[in-house]
Amino acid sequence: MTPSQIDAIETSFRLVAPIAEPAAAIFYQRLFALDPAIKPLFAQTDISEQGRKLMQAIGFVVANLRRPDALLPAVAALGARHRGYGVRPGHYDTVGQALLDTLAEGLGPHFTAEVRDAWAAAYGVLAHAMIEAAAETPRAA
């Protein structure tokens, strides 16, 4: 990621943070619309609480984009945990699309091509780290 991409993410996230709750709701609505087969993974989950966790995780990522030494181990651990929840590598593309769709809706005219490309680049790096960590994690018995 380039410094200008990080700047674009930080700036745009400042616009998303005040609408975190509705943004999280949009994200999960879009995720389940894109792939209804994902919804059962959340059957035992309070989706409002999950939305708060999602926004906290995104906030952590944004706050640490300039510190990959702090960010990547935390993201890898998250990927390993997600394997235990039933998340598969193919799910990451759907999550990425739901994220970009949510940002497009939440940011409106502020969701420029530059902002979209920056978020897509960041998500690609993080999803790759999560998938790799999950692949290295033994399945629970």
Results as ranks from 00 to 15, higher is better:
25 A>R: 12
26 I>D: 15
29 Q>D: 14
29 Q>P: 10
30 R>H: 06
32 F>Y: 12
33 A>D: 14
34 L>N: 03
34 L>V: 10
35 D>W: 11
36 P>D: 06
37 A>C: 05
37 A>P: 12
39 K>V: 02
40 P>R: 11
42 F>I: 04
42 F>D: 01
43 A>Q: 10
44 Q>Y: 14
44 Q>E: 10
44 Q>H: 15
45 T>C: 11
47 I>P: 04
48 S>P: 05
49 E>Q: 06
50 Q>A: 02
51 G>F: 03
52 R>I: 15
52 R>W: 10
52 R>Q: 13
53 K>A: 12
55 M>L: 12
55 M>E: 09
56 Q>H: 12
56 Q>N: 09
58 I>G: 00
63 A>V: 10
63 A>K: 05
63 A>Y: 09
65 L>S: 00
67 R>H: 15
68 P>L: 07
68 P>E: 11
68 P>F: 08
68 P>K: 03
68 P>Q: 05
69 D>T: 08
69 D>H: 09
72 L>A: 06
72 L>W: 03
72 L>F: 08
72 L>K: 01
74 A>E: 09
74 A>T: 14
75 V>W: 03
76 A>E: 10
76 A>K: 12
79 G>K: 01
81 R>A: 06
81 R>N: 02
81 R>S: 06
82 H>P: 04
84 G>T: 01
84 G>C: 04
84 G>R: 01
86 G>T: 10
86 G>D: 10
87 V>F: 06
87 V>W: 05
89 P>R: 02
90 G>Q: 09
92 Y>H: 13
95 V>Y: 08
95 V>A: 11
96 G>C: 08
98 A>W: 01
98 A>H: 00
101 D>S: 07
102 T>I: 03
103 L>D: 00
104 A>I: 07
107 L>C: 07
108 G>R: 01
108 G>L: 01
109 P>S: 14
110 H>R: 14
111 F>Q: 00
114 E>F: 11
115 V>L: 02
115 V>F: 04
115 V>K: 00
118 A>Q: 07
118 A>C: 15
119 W>H: 04
119 W>P: 01
120 A>C: 06
122 A>D: 11
122 A>H: 14
122 A>T: 15
125 V>G: 02
126 L>P: 05
126 L>A: 11
127 A>V: 07
127 A>F: 05
129 A>Y: 00
130 M>H: 03
131 I>G: 00
132 E>Y: 08
132 E>M: 12
133 A>I: 13
133 A>G: 13
134 A>Q: 06
135 A>E: 13
135 A>L: 11
135 A>M: 09
136 E>F: 12
136 E>M: 13
